[in-house]
Amino acid sequence: MSTAGPPFISVRNLHKQIGDQQILRGINLTIREGENLVIIGGSGTGKSVFLKLVMGLIPATSGSIIVDNTEITTLNERQLGPHRRKIGMLFQDGALFDSLTVAENVAFPLRESGMKDSPDMHSRIHEVLAAVGLADHGHKLPAALSGGMRKRAALARAVVSRPRCIFYDEPTAGLDPIVSDSIDRLIRRTQLHYRCTSVVVTHDMRSVRSVADRVVYFREGLIHFEGSPDQLFSSTDPLVRQFVEGHCDEDE
């Protein structure tokens, strides 16, 4: 388990409405530097929306989002650029640029930050690709990779510029248990190696056990539960138990 530091992300009374649908109804959450937070919750409860709001990819309806002491809800698209570089994001399907090879995808954040092509840059790319087990696949296009490899390549792209925090949006969704386990280990290793903050959105209870320092459970746009993985799995709250054990209500 990591030792959490001062607050890195602080969200207050966050609301998000899309069309007629109220996705988030007043989220209050503080994420500390160095901690591994896992967000769980049913489909459509606003977990991915929460990540996108904190990244500034979609605007909040109301509320405050402070990242590294900067209120981001008042920033425009261009002002958000430097803020976003502090956070790496692993998208649900990887979102690799399909016209670039794996190595070019990983090099992309470095080039965009102004780094010139150099042996130093290439060794950094190789090091990151090796860390995710793709050292021999740098020349391939994303279309030639399996789902698990794509996620690992996307993880390499997310960490190569050494962000202070990484968001993982359902990193193990659609993967077999063995690949899922390897992704979980990778998240853990990444956290230890780069000492970064991690926020993982998942439905996978195995991931919760292996990754989380703290868990929050989103339900109907609010935080229904917040605590350690042990507290989650020993909770007597019927709604938490139902979600953790994956039982559907007979009446539903």
């Binding site: 996108k52 990244m55 990819l57 698209e77 261009r78 958000l80 650029g81 430097p82 803020h83 976003r84 570089r85 956070i87 790496g88 994001m89 998208f91 649900q92 399907d93 979102a95 690799l96 640029f97 399909d98 992309f108 954040p109 965009e112 930050s113």
Partner: peptide, 17 residues
């Protein structure tokens, strides 16, 4: 296609307009 596969969001997340 980049938009619907979140590649445009990935660009933005990397601080690129």
């Amino acid at each position: 296609t980049m938009k619907v596969t979140e590649q445009v969001d990935a660009l933005r997340s990397l601080g690129v307009h």
